[in-house]
Amino acid sequence: MRKSSINKSQFGFYFVVPYFITFLIFGLTPIIYSLYLSFMKWDGFSDPVFVGLANYTRLLQDTFFLKSIGNTLIIWVLSIVPQLILALILAMILNEKFIRGKHFFRAVFYFPNIVTPVTLGVLFSLMFDWQTGSVNKLLMGIGLIDDPVNWFNSPWLARLIVAGVIMWQYFGFNMLVFIAGLQSIPHELYEAAEVDGASRWDIAIKITLPLLKPVLLFTFITSIIGGLQLFDAPLMLGNGPDNSTLTMVMYLYQTAFKNFDYSYGAAIAYAIFVIILIFSLISIKFSKMNKVEQ
């Protein structure tokens, strides 16, 4: 019996092989091929020509790319800060025992997260259209503004709208993550605090928040990786005035697949990868420092 089960162990290897073969073909080879192309000059028609580091030196002086890094970071910060605060408040409210209709609220808050980002981008670009959009009509209808606001004519308003759409789409997801974190806090802690006469506010600030800190940090870190890759919805909302809402991946897409400068696009892809890597390492280091302090 024993002998036969040892003989079977190779099957485990066979079972994981399809993953590696597929990843090799559709994942790893393209990544290495992209690196090779980033040292070439290739427009998609003629043969690639070796140009060394030319694409990368061009990248360092490319004001559009540098601007797109700034835009992406600004949009990410504008969306993540209010998003996490709102998600945290809602999670703490929905974790209270007296709230009715918990499932309904969770479902409604989470729903925007699964709607196709492209569709949301188109929907919001129509709603915020300054002449025909319903947002201006609504604001004028309730008397908040007298004239329609040209949202996409101001760099900061345009960024705020993109950030707002991202926030609107992701706060429900983060709320669910925080609720899961809240539910893993042992009840005895709350009971002990209540016996000691702590108010609800004290409990929230002194017990819940510190215990939730790891979950908050984790969400923050993972949001950097996603936030730096913003693409679908911002693409539909447009580049904004003076390219103020052009994100890094949008620039990659437009360079490679609109202007057919594939090799330069490959260099941009690697630059984005390096930027994401740096930010991930910084945040991991930051969270480790936090742990040591505690």
């Binding site: 994942g27 790893l28 393209p30 990544i31 091929y33 992209s34 892809a269 984005i272 990868f273």
Partner: peptide, 21 residues
């Protein structure tokens, strides 16, 4: 560990090579 490592790679890193391949 290699499988877990591949989860860290951003999706659009190899997109140009993918297209050409």
């Amino acid at each position: 560990m290699a499988v877990l490592g591949t989860m860290m790679i951003p999706g659009q890193l190899g997109i140009i090579g993918f297209f050409k391949l």
